[in-house]
């Protein structure tokens, strides 16, 4: 098993480098944007003198490299700095945004896995059969609809016409769990496309696995069809789905901006948008640390799962 540990260590050290690269890149790109926090703060009174004053108090007149170095030094001690705009610590922003985003992501994942795997296995039962055609057509159609269009459609039908569900989270406080009805439409929108892509992957993997000699061998010995499907074929179909699932979770935890904006949920995506608009570099950098770490860890997790279900590929990785 030392083989596996060496692999993990190698992957983790590469991951740290990847996060560092993301941070440097994000910093450079924000620097490259026209204007800075001082201009944004000066707002409606773009008086050059006032801007210069703000720059000085914020230390924005120091060279970019120096500011990045200071920020990185703080990061090593767990200090993400303070917002240029409000002066509040960046960690406060992150924890505030993480709550709603985590709730949405967790709910979506909890529904996504059983629904997508179930649909995929069901469609693969008989390739080209009526169920398969129905599921394949429906998933392709839903997948083609972008989040914002689906969101607007759902709001119009369920909130405005039928009046069954609240159209947005406005007025329900910052804790989305206090009023679960608020979450129904956002979770539906978040579910729509991932369910389609993952169920199609599971279906394709299941069709291959059910046609493979090992499934034929299980059937020959009288193993019931259901058990062949779930216990013998499905594990082979899960490796590609696990990779896609990790990408989906990464997307969800990054705060899906379209959904957060549409339903007015104060998640990480909204915070990121506001920070970019205000050129609030410490907040942007803080978010980059969170997103980068999540991406690296999730992909590592997915590779571990894939390695478990397709052990031979691990030898080559």
């Amino acid at each position: 098993m030392s083989d596996r540990r060496a692999w993990l260590v190698r992957r983790l050290s590469v991951g740290v480098l990847q996060i560092a690269g993301v941070l440097a890149l994000v910093f450079l790109l924000t620097e490259a944007l026209p204007g800075d926090a001082a201009v944004a703060l000066a707002g409606d009174h773009p008086d050059p003198e006032r801007i210069a004053r703000i720059r000085e108090t914020m230390n924005l007149d120091e060279p970019a490299a120096e500011r990045l170095a200071q920020w990185a030094a703080g990061l090593l001690t767990g200090d993400l700095g303070t917002s240029l705009v409000s002066g509040r610590p960046v960690t406060g922003y992150l924890t505030a945004g993480l709550g709603p985003t985590l709730v949405l992501a967790a709910l979506t994942m909890a529904l996504l896995v059983p629904v997508a795997v179930g649909l995929g296995v069901l469609a693969a039962r008989r390739e080209g059969g009526r169920t398969d055609r129905l599921i394949s057509t429906a998933t392709l159609a839903v997948y083609a609809v972008p989040e914002f269009a689906l969101g607007v459609l759902l709001v119009v039908v369920f909130a405005l016409q039928l009046g069954r569900l609240p159209p947005t989270a406005v007025g329900h406080g910052s804790d989305p769990l206090a009023e679960p009805a608020v979450l129904v439409l956002p979770v539906l929108v978040l579910l729509a496309r991932p369910v389609c892509s993952i169920s199609r992957l599971v279906r394709a993997g299941m069709i291959d696995a059910l046609a493979a000699p090992y499934s034929a061998q299980a059937r020959r010995y009288g193993v019931p069809a259901g058990r062949v499907r779930w216990a013998h074929a499905l594990p082979n179909a899960l490796a590609p789905a696990a990779q896609q699932l990790a990408r989906t979770l990464d997307w969800l935890l990054g705060g899906v901006i379209v959904v957060e904006t549409l339903f007015v949920i104060q998640g990480l995506g909204t915070i990121l948008m506001d920070a970019v608009a205000a050129r609030d570099i410490p907040v942007i950098q803080g978010l980059a640390v969170v997103f980068g770490t999540l991406t690296v860890l999730l992909n590592l997790g997915a590779d571990l799962v894939a390695r478990h279900f397709a052990p031979r590929t691990g030898a080559a990785a």
Binding site: A212, P213, Y214, R220, Y221, V223, H232, P235, A310, P311
Partner: peptide, 24 residues
């Protein structure tokens, strides 16, 4: 019962060798 030409193909790569034996 059947012993195929390539025994490797008859064994499920994602499951331990005991899985099908248990089901039989």
């Amino acid at each position: 019962a059947y012993i195929p030409q390539s025994p490797a193909a008859a064994l499920n790569p994602a499951r331990r060798a005991g899985a099908l034996l248990g089901d039989i």
